[in-house]
Design a protein around this nucleic acid. Structure first.
Lengths: 411, 411
DNA sequence: CTTAGTTTGTTCAATCAACGGACAAAGATT
DNA sequence: AATCTTTGTCCGTTGATTGAACAAACTAAG
């Protein structure tokens, strides 16, 4: 029912405030934290002591000011980490990030989802998670949780992928399966839509740092959307919000993979681009071609001034901009982040996108929405998964048990 | 910077929890509140006492259970009220609602915005506010604040209407003007977009009670959108979110009042309906005709089975459904509320709307979005303005100064 | 080198909110 | 009349934040 507050949650909240402040604003003395946050120095001392016991902060350098006693800098401890994974149709990426915001390790594996099927893929995922967590422990690090991103309609609270069209999965209880395979690990596992996680990553350390309202677009076969509203992921009533790729924008449009007609992805996804710039059967449209190679080839043609390629990019950019203008009208975000191939080819697509936005957005004269190319075009979701874990620690530092205190840290 | 909690805000939060619980769940004994909220009986007694001193709750009947000592029921005091106003192109509506959720009074005035201009209109508004507040005080009631809804791009935090196309206003500092005209009243004045307020009203007491995610559409000359995400109004970076009427949905579309082409309102607004069902110059398309009369005439024709009218309603319903499906895909709301003429003609439009939605929404197979006709087709915004005020009292009961305690209540 | 001034961080008593237990009040049941 | 049940208050305890005092550590000026 209604959430009520007692003194324990008050303490928790202030622990969170101090830790979050250190993460966001950087290392500083206790006295500085106190004035920054409006807390009493004594309170901050007490809070910092508890955070230290939990292995979340440690003593840093001594900082001399102009006059007066130098301060003992408190800084975030890098031992507590989040593990994020991103499952794509042909690969899996994993990142370990620590609370300081630094990347501890990254892992990439190719795999054939079709071949492995859900069970085989999840077994492989579980094994990967297990080995990363084990390796981190040997390094004296503590994985506080795992965040997994998958493309499709995800019921995040239930840890279930309801419809994963691209993976060919349906009603897969990903979290339950992984928990079983890993033998009920002590760390929690969180499942989310890949675009949501990507948006979180861009906001945390990417090209949208500090933006409370942003939209991330995955440029892939389809177009996925991750929307952050006032700092929180837009989920909707059942967690299915953000299905921007299937907005009906072209009434006269062609058939979409979802069975409907005129979906946005049909005019701005990768197949649409290939249709524009190449005849069917031409080598560049060969499904077997590596994505990176295909994008490199498109860029080569564009830079040589190939008219059809340039026209095609302009058309796709206009298509992207058309849908983007709808979203910007609705959400009035600070930033629109282009992911996937939208980002890789971003410089070529940008003029058309910007043209659409400035022509179609109502509030354009009052406020401008920045359009940015993703800082991590194909790996943002994995990083976002790690950030979800780290955010849960920031929101409730008492989730990390005390005792990690003076474990030695570095090896 | 970061918000920090001390014991005062802890108290505030729990006062809020108790008051909100009473508003939402109805009158009940202290003991019942304690078990409902998980608070200690002693704590609840203390909280209730303070709420009583502030004139927010009062002692009700004695409630006998099966056995044991009867409980003293605590109920919400109706003396604290919110005043909401809604400014339309040709009228202003005002509602006073009390914390119990009951309507204390309503006021309607016709006015010619064009004729009065911003200054004259605001003077009239101020006078209306003053007289209502004065009248309420004589009734022993306390107006805790004023919420004003206007159509257009509103910067709510600044209390400014940036672009009010229908009113013909631009960069009007509504709140500042009213505060000056009213001589710095002690109650705060809040300005918001009318669709936002309407959404709040429907969620508070209308057809979307309890829905954390909903979309309100004003069916007017244009289409305004008010979106609630996880219980909070979607504002975006600058407060201009929700401009759904100017989504570009019809690429080949006709010119919109905003200067662009293919906006949603051009295919589903009132002018589009009139274009479909009547020739230019026909009496029903006469701008001088009263809206209510026009709607009645359309209904008459539809019920007589006039083919053109039925075709037109179907076309407009399809147009509404087209844009609605885009919104439902993006937001995954529990409820979509139709306001204005969408609501009045709702029964006639619904088949086409529902048809579009079931055909165009991706998650339709997993979760269904209810479509409802507004409970207050043309006055929801005024009610919503009052609810904003009441919500601010619920969020922080200490805003109401103590001393209203035993002032006598009834007149 | 000494002294004054500044800033940091800890200690300690005070304050305040919530809590648990005890208890009186008020009624139903036997 | 005795017992049981429930309500609401009282009171001492717990725990978190706070303000003031103070020692520590350093700079700047004389």
């Amino acid at each position: 029912m209604d959430v009520v507050v007692d003194q324990i949650s008050l303490r928790r909240y202030n622990l969170s405030a101090v830790l979050r402040h250190l993460c966001g604003a950087g290392p500083r003395s206790r006295a500085r934290i106190a004035t920054d946050l409006g807390l009493n120095k004594a309170t901050v001392s007490s809070l910092v002591a508890e955070l230290g016991e939990r292995g979340l902060v440690l003593a840093g350098d001594v900082e001399r000011g102009q006059v007066g006693r130098p301060g003992q800098v408190v800084e975030v401890d890098g031992r507590v980490c989040g593990l994020g994974l991103q499952l794509g149709v042909d690969h899996v990426a994993a990142y370990v990030l620590d609370l300081r915001g630094e990347m501890v390790s990254s892992h990439h594996r190719r795999l054939d989802i079709q071949d492995l099927g859900p069970a085989g893929t999840l077994a492989m995922l579980a094994e990967l998670i297990g080995s990363i967590v084990g390796g981190a422990a040997q390094d004296g690090r503590h994985i506080a949780g795992v965040g997994v991103g998958v493309p499709g309609l995800v019921e995040s609270a239930a840890g279930s992928l309801r419809i994963g069209a691209n993976l060919g999965w349906r009603d897969t209880r990903v979290v339950d399966e992984l928990v079983t395979l890993l033998g009920n690990p002590e760390y929690p596992i969180h499942l989310d839509n890949d675009a949501n996680l990507a948006a979180i990553a861009e906001r945390a350390t990417g090209c949208a740092v500090g933006a409370g309202n942003l939209i991330y677009l995955t440029g892939d076969v389809g177009i996925g959307g991750g929307v952050i509203v006032d700092g929180r992921v837009l989920r909707g009533a059942d967690g299915f919000a953000g299905e921007v790729g299937h907005m009906t924008l072209a009434g006269d449009g062609r058939l979409c993979g979802c069975g409907r007609k005129g979906c946005w992805e049909t005019v701005a996804g990768m197949p649409a681009l290939l249709r524009e710039i190449a005849d069917p059967g031409s080598p560049i449209a060969d499904p077997a071609m590596e994505l990176q190679e295909r994008l490199a080839e498109i860029r080569r043609r564009a830079e040589l001034g190939d008219a059809r390629t340039l026209r095609g990019l302009d058309a796709i950019g206009t298509g992207i901009g058309l849908g983007a203008s709808v979203l910007v009208n609705i959400f009035n975000p600070q930033v629109l982040v282009l992911g996937g191939f939208f980002s890789v080819l971003g410089d070529l697509l940008m003029p058309a996108i910007q043209g659409q936005l400035s022509g179609q957005v109502v509030s354009e004269s009052l406020s401008q929405c920045r359009v940015e190319r993703s800082a991590f075009p194909f790996t943002a979701a994995a990083r976002g998964g790690a950030h979800v874990v780290l955010e849960s620690v920031l929101a409730d530092p008492t989730r990390v048990p005390p005792g990690l205190a003076r474990a030695g840290g570095s090896r």
